[in-house]
Design a protein around this nucleic acid. Structure first.
Lengths: 228, 228
DNA sequence: TGAATAACAGAGTGTGACTATGATATAACC
DNA sequence: GGTTATATCATAGTCACACTCTGTTATTCA
């Protein structure tokens, strides 16, 4: 019973060929004939599985996106604090895009800017992932890790926007070579932009008193008001 | 001699109609017939001004992009310091996109992810704008306003990525309503992520000594080493 | 007014998405 | 194993649209 039904297997082959060819030539320049040939099926068969070229395009990211989110969700419970969670989410995004360049190509160059994609099952999953990120930011604000006046939606836009920009840039211009090495600098930068100001306790002052006079009875230290 | 040549005027009309229709229906779904009809010329005439539908698309952003950059460059000399310059550049980007929604639509949904657009005159100008932003970040690092270990390319990606994300989101999902109101929070957040740590001098400590004993001869204050 | 140029309508080509059909192969079930 | 149901196939055909070609008409400019 471990045998996959031949129908599902054929469908899988079409999707894989489509991914490869769409990523290589772009959605518009790729033809159904090429895809069906690469998958070893006839043109007509493609249309028995998918109603249109666009529907085929939209089906491609489903599995991999769902799998990614699941994996990230599995890691979450092991992390403590908004900062580590946020870092993990960003790392997870970038890892997927780094490890599946064709998938990344499709998402960044063909799906992200497609109106119809918004009405898609795969997009639902993408939206869930974005929600997870948002929750994490909100958690940081509530627990006092992040500034109280932080706009969580803006922070999310900054994070997603940066990832998308890096990814698009990589696929069009070949830079940066390695996106994963950008994760920590990027997260550090954003975190230090939204972290609540440190409590005074981490500044310790040592008073070395020299001389012959005895110490005064009390010393009061009054820190200046912090400028916002 | 203030009369524009009828040829240039006709060309202008075609470009304007194309902008409108591309933004409304998307590049693929718009047809040359619609555009020529809207411009009041024949299909054949369109091909006398532009070699292809795509060349027409690429020509649209030329003027407005050049004009925008010039305007921003004109303001620059009046600004002192990397922070104000950076803020001005971001504001200038967002203003253009806010004031020219059709142009923004085209850039974000159809040009930014087009390989051929990279070989375009209009893209040259876009690249110049990105360079200006980069120079400004580098200046901030050199003058000590920003952290020494800041990666200027990463900061630029964060800024451009965020703007693009906000803009794409607005055009696909209608949010945020007003992007200009996001400029200051966004710039503030990024600045506080890259600003060099404040010198100790802004922390002043008042020692109130009470009691009868005389003050000691010297007091040495040794601040703890900052954690990076 | 006359010569050069631009714009035109309309017919024609090629490509590629998608449909329809009937024949053939494959799977499923008794 | 044989029969039925289902998938797959090749093929031919439709349609929309980008783009070309041609000869005619309108505009511009001297």
């Amino acid at each position: 019973m471990s045998k996959i039904s031949p129908k599902a297997e054929r469908r899988e082959r079409i999707i894989e060929s489509a991914l490869k060819i769409f990523a290589e030539k772009g959605f518009q320049d790729a033809t159904i004939s090429e895809i069906s040939k690469a998958a070893g099926v006839s043109d007509a068969t493609v249309y028995e599985y998918f109603n249109s070229k666009e529907e085929l395009l939209f089906t491609i990211p489903e599995d991999i996106t769902v799998e990614t989110i699941r994996e990230t969700e599995r890691v979450m419970p092991f992390l403590r604090g908004a900062e580590s969670k946020l870092r993990a989410i960003v790392q997870s995004y970038v890892t997927i895009y780094e490890q599946n360049p064709e998938y990344a190509n499709l998402i960044m160059l063909h799906l992200k800017t497609n109106r119809n994609f918004l009405r898609t099952r795969a997009f639902e999953v993408v939206r869930d992932a974005a929600r997870m990120l948002l929750e994490c930011i909100k958690e940081g604000i509530e627990t006092g890790t992040f500034r109280k006046n932080t706009d969580p939606y803006l922070v999310r836009s900054i994070i997603l926007g940066t990832i998308e920009h890096l990814c698009t840039r990589k696929h069009l211009q070949g830079q940066p070579e390695n996106m994963l090495s950008q994760v920590d600098p990027m997260v550090d930068l954003i975190l230090s932009g939204i972290r609540a100001p440190q409590e005074q306790q981490n500044i310790s002052i040592h008073l070395h008193m020299t001389g012959t006079a005895k110490a005064p009875e009390t010393i009061t230290i009054v820190p200046e008001e912090r400028k916002p």
